[in-house]
Write a protein that binds this DNA or RNA. Structure first.
Length: 401
RNA sequence: GCGGGUGUAGCUCAAUUGGUUAGAGCGCCAGUUUGUGGUACUGGAGGUCGUGGGUUCAAUUCCCAUCACUCGCC
């Protein structure tokens, strides 16, 4: 399973938990893990430039196969020199398989159900799913597309990210065990087909991640882990339904992680809350990705550590961000977080950001995105430091209550 | 000065032949956002229905007066 130009080494293993430090080496650079991967869905971080991302200490970003295959198409990106050159990001990069979007965007309610939520009125665009692959309508022009495991790998090859992922079916939370089991086996067959297609390509250019399925069922999670362990994937991603709430998610992550081969890096798909990251790290997760930090920024939310609430004499329990749209920030001349070193906190006040949000100025989203990106990179950096110093529990108390 | 029109939530407007706690959008106040269809979703506060009379069991609704704004004509 050695993939030329790609290596993953555990540089430190905690004794108290499964938390570990690692070095994930790619042709575009090294990622110190645990690390957070920001979502540049359509080859763009919404509201920030690649320079902004580098300036705020970003190690790695991700782009979405689903969106890019529809617009502008992987051929265009390939002709433009691949994603790195296309978007001006020369660091490590990952693309997902497009599987999740087909189900979450297509089924309408599944995205919500997957994460234990409800209500959605999106049009259904998923037309058919069978052994061959998934047929869906483009949300852009209604054109029919078929995404097969082979096609997903081909598209990702054209996009040219360092780390790529096998196509899977993301089962919604509400389905029963028998459906989850059948779906898991089909995703396994898709994984084998993805791997076979992957091996037809040039070696040493990209590394492939396999995904563990099994929903909330311990025996299925074990079977799926055994399966991905048995194939020569470079890394693993924890996928499928993680349950209906945070408590169940913790249980699922634990049961999914336990049997996975520790020699390979493990990515937890789509998770990015502060408390979730601490939990994941303690279960041995090496990388996370989530739209939360950047989406939250666009809605006026700034991620903050506990000290911010303490400085305002407010109860910090359960809070991970401040809503700068709140009227109480109208005449607050302090930065979001006095201890933050980001560009936004160096120059802009809460009161000004509040005004920008109220006035609908794009600058608000830009400034908050930069802050949240810096925050996540700082958080993960502190977590790595704490793991090395064997004080992760103490560190955690500085970020969440 | 004469004639017409309009006055309902902070704003733009709805309210069935007069009939129970007068609605919506936006705004405002707050909450939610976890493998991103870029500005979504949920909840909440807020009205002496221009003012004063009158008719009626009952008036935002009908009548009179009055004020404000507005259009047209002398």
């Amino acid at each position: 399973m050695e993939t030329p130009n790609f290596t993953f080494n555990t540089t430190f293993q905690s004794l108290g938990s499964k938390a570990r430090l690692g070095r994930l080496s790619t042709p575009h650079g090294i990622v110190e893990t645990p690390a957070f991967i920001f979502c540049a869905t359509k080859a763009a971080i919404k509201g920030a430039t690649p320079q902004n991302m580098r300036q705020e200490n970003t190690q790695i970003i991700l782009a979405n196969t689903y969106h890019l295959m529809l617009q502008p198409g992987s051929e265009i990106v390939a002709r433009m020199g691949g994603l790195h050159q296309f978007m001006g990001w020369d660091g490590p990069m990952l693309t997902d398989s497009g599987g999740f979007q087909i189900f979450s965007l297509g089924h309408g309610s599944i995205a919500e159900e997957v994460k234990g939520r409800r209500h959605s009125s999106r049009p259904k665009s998923l037309l058919k799913i069978n052994e061959e692959g998934a047929t869906f309508k483009s949300y852009i022009d209604g054109k029919r597309h078929i995404l097969t495991p082979e096609k997903s790998i081909q598209v990702q090859r054209g996009l040219g990210a360092d780390l790529i992922v096998v196509l899977d079916e993301c089962t919604p939370f509400h389905v029963d065990k028998s459906y989850t089991e059948r779906s898991m086996h089909m995703s396994h067959r898709w994984a084998e087909r993805s791997l076979k297609e992957f091996q037809k390509g040039p070696s040493g250019v990209q590394a492939l991640y396999g995904i563990t399925q099994g929903g909330v069922y311990p025996d299925l999670r074990k079977a799926s882990a055994d399966f991905v362990n048995s194939l020569p994937f470079f890394g693993h991603a924890v996928g499928g339904s993680l349950g209906a709430n945070k408590t169940q998610m913790a249980e699922v992550v634990e049961m999914a992680m336990e049997p996975l081969n520790p020699a390979r890096p493990v990515h937890l798909l789509g998770i990015g809350g502060i408390s979730d990251i601490f939990y994941g790290v303690q279960q041995g997760i090496d990388t996370f990705d989530c739209v939360h930090p950047t989406r939250l920024a666009r809605h006026g939310g700034a991620l903050v550590p506990l000290s911010v609430w303490e400085n305002m004499s407010e109860d910090p329990r359960g809070r991970e961000h401040m809503n700068l749209r709140n009227a109480r920030f109208r005449d607050d001349s302090r930065p979001i977080d006095e201890t933050c070193g980001c560009q936004t906190c160096q120059t802009l006040s809460r009161g000004y950001l509040h005004h920008l949000l109220k006035a609908g100025e794009f600058l608000a989203m830009h400034a908050l995105t930069i802050h949240n990106v810096h925050f996540m990179n700082r958080l993960l950096s502190r977590i790595r430091q704490a793991i090395a110093l064997k004080c992760l529990e103490e560190e955690k108390k500085k970020w969440i209550a």
